[in-house]
């Protein structure tokens, strides 16, 4: 189960990267990057998954005593939470840049912005 989701996650990352590196349109690049981020999140969570165990909530169903035996590893989930929000932050910033770049040169093609070279 974990292996399958890992594979899914990695394929998503690779697809995202492929999209980001081949598409010339900036917005499509940012979309590809969000896909890659989603892939990373899937990988992160699937590493923490353990078979036949439940979510790390200690309530009536999972009393504190048996917690160690019944819940899955909470740490990857914490990391993912932060990672998603940071991913959103960076995406929002890139979108703002994309918009400003568009305002600058009137086009969204990355190869239009090459005056800083050599």
């Amino acid at each position: 189960m974990a292996q399958v989701s890992l594979l899914i996650g990695f394929t998503l990352i690779l697809l995202g990267l492929y999209g980001a590196l081949t598409n010339r349109d900036i917005l499509r690049m940012i979309v590809s990057f969000t896909i890659a981020d989603a892939g990373v999140n899937v990988v992160l969570v699937s590493v923490g998954y353990m078979a036949h165990r439940t979510a790390p909530i200690l309530d009536s169903a999972v009393p504190a005593g048996q917690a160690a035996a019944r819940i899955i590893d909470p740490v990857p989930q914490v990391l993912v939470l932060t990672a998603i929000v940071i991913g959103l932050g960076v995406t929002a910033l890139m979108l703002a840049y994309a918009y400003r770049l568009f305002r600058l040169r009137g086009s969204l093609d990355i190869s239009q912005f090459m005056d800083l070279k050599w």
């Binding site: 990057f33 981020d37 940071i86 960076v90 910033l93 840049y97 912005f113 800083l116």
Partner: peptide, 18 residues
């Protein structure tokens, strides 16, 4: 041109993040 530079920087930081 700083905006283009900033954008390139963010692309690379995405890769580093992954």
């Amino acid at each position: 041109r700083a905006i283009a530079a900033g954008f390139k920087y963010l692309i690379i930081s995405q890769l580093v993040t992954i």
